[in-house]
Design a protein around this nucleic acid. Structure first.
Lengths: 101, 101
DNA sequence: CAAACTGGTTTGTATTTCAAACCAAAAAGG
DNA sequence: CCTTTTTGGTTTGAAATACAAACCAGTTTG
């Protein structure tokens, strides 16, 4: 019997997107990160990073705080409880899928 | 140091899509499957199954053979060598990602 | 022989994604 | 100073995706 592929349909698409998966993975281990750090780490363009972050924020998966380092803007991002939970669930589902094939 | 999230950008998007990942996973263990079997197994509509299969075929990941069972049409699908290779690579990458976080 | 069912494909629309253009503030150069 | 460049982003278009609904040819059923 083939793997339970039905469970794949339930994957959280918001996290599944590779760019956002990368972001979520990073944020799950750093407590908080700024915009440029995330850009360097993921290799995304500023535009794409900005819009992916906006989506994650809209979903309540990250909280974005716009502040200043001295006088230059600093955008800080951290995973929310909901974001951490969703990421954990995503990983668990995917891991299960990978195991049984 | 956060996980190597750069590697996620290299995931094969064609396989990454959940519907096609499900199809590929099934085909990786069955040698050959017909259209309706794949539909039942994945829960996709006929339309979506048809177009996802078309994409996989276009990429050379599956071979589709249209034949007949008696007088009613029968569409048989099997993974090609390239498809099997791509699927294997996808799994390896993802597994690696899951392991180091 | 008309209606419904099989086994699909095509079409239309709504989302998504990416890249390129844009923008305001700050720093650097002449 | 005043222009130019750089920093730290956001907004805007255009292209690709994905999904659902409509369609279609052939077959069986009433």
């Amino acid at each position: 019997m083939p793997a339970d592929t039905r469970s794949l349909a339930e994957l959280d698409r918001l996290i599944h997107e590779p760019a956002r998966l990368a972001l979520t993975a990073i944020l799950s281990v750093v407590e908080s990160a700024d915009f440029l750090y995330l850009q360097r780490e993921t290799g995304l363009t500023k535009g794409n990073l900005s819009s992916h972050l906006a989506k994650l924020e809209e979903a309540g998966y990250v909280a974005i705080e716009k502040t200043y380092r001295g006088r230059i803007p600093l955008t800080l991002v951290r995973l929310t409880g909901a974001g951490a939970k969703a990421y954990k669930a995503y990983r668990a589902r995917f891991k299960k899928f990978l195991e049984k094939a």
